[in-house]
Computed example of a mutant assay.
Amino acid sequence: MKSGDDTHESTRCPGCRAELPTTPWPENPKINASAACLKASGDLLGFELEHQLKLGYLHQLRMDAYHAQHVRVGAPRIGPVFALNGLYMFLERGSGNLDVRTAHGIMANSCDDWPELVAPAEVGRLTTSDVLAAGGPEEVEKAMLTWADEVWASWPENDREVVRELTIDLVPARYFRR
């Protein structure tokens, strides 16, 4: 990007494809994200914490949407399954933060042969930086819900069905709110 005589370097996130200004934020080899995208995710977490009364109920959803959008090739199979499980439980079953975290624990102790899920080429139009730029708490809440829904819908139906079935098979019904 050029603005007058100043040149600003940018980088494209390999996971969500966001084009963001380069940052000295540290890389994380465990996740398929640029340093700039990891910084945006950290900034969104900070915003969430500043507005915890309004946004706290979306904490697990934010983490699951981000991880489902940034799956690294060769990562442990449990990662995308858990990210999609969280999206499924919140978006389709009405489950909250504690329900999803409990389900993750139950699933981790009940299964050791995770399906191999490969992230689609496109993982939703919105990114964590878009959510952060949405405005105040109400706008960020709406953007976060839209973002999570887009990420969930971007995964192939057969992968979503595998996660639905695995979740229903392993997680007691009391953790589903609808």
Rank of each mutant, 00 (worst) to 15 (best):
S3Q: 13
D5M: 12
D5Q: 13
E9L: 13
S10I: 09
S10L: 11
T11E: 12
C13A: 08
G15P: 02
G15D: 01
G15Y: 00
C16H: 06
R17F: 01
E19F: 10
L20F: 05
T22C: 11
T22Q: 13
W25C: 08
P26I: 10
K30F: 14
I31Y: 02
A33W: 02
A35L: 04
L38N: 00
K39R: 10
A40S: 14
A40F: 09
A40G: 09
G42I: 03
G42T: 02
D43L: 11
L45K: 14
L49C: 01
Q52F: 15
L53A: 15
L53N: 14
K54A: 15
L55T: 09
Y57S: 15
Y57T: 15
R62F: 04
A65M: 05
Y66A: 13
A68T: 12
V73D: 14
V73R: 14
P76G: 09
R77V: 02
R77E: 11
G79F: 13
P80D: 00
P80E: 03
V81E: 02
F82I: 01
F82V: 00
L84W: 01
G86N: 10
L87T: 02
Y88A: 02
F90M: 10
E92R: 15
E92K: 15
R93P: 08
R93I: 03
S95Y: 06
D99F: 09
D99R: 07
A103L: 07
A103M: 05
A103N: 07
H104G: 09
I106S: 03
N109T: 10
N109H: 12
S110F: 00
S110R: 06
D112N: 11
D112L: 03
D113A: 13
D113Y: 07
W114Q: 00
P115Y: 04
V118N: 05
V118H: 08
A119R: 06
A119E: 01
A119C: 07
P120H: 04
A121H: 10
E122A: 12
E122I: 09
V123K: 09
V123Q: 06
G124V: 06
G124L: 07
T127Y: 05
T127E: 05
T128L: 12
T128C: 14
T128N: 11
S129C: 05
S129P: 01
D130P: 02
D130G: 02
V131E: 10
V131I: 12
L132A: 14
A133K: 12
A133C: 08
A134I: 11
P137F: 08
E139Y: 09
V140A: 04
V140N: 01
M144S: 13
L145T: 09
A148D: 04
E150T: 02
E150C: 03
V151N: 08
A153G: 11
W155H: 10
R160A: 01
V162L: 15
V162T: 15
V163E: 00
V163A: 03
V163D: 00
R164A: 00
E165D: 15
T167S: 08
T167D: 07
T167I: 08
T167F: 03
I168N: 02
V171R: 01
P172I: 13
A173I: 12
R177I: 08
R178N: 14
R178A: 11
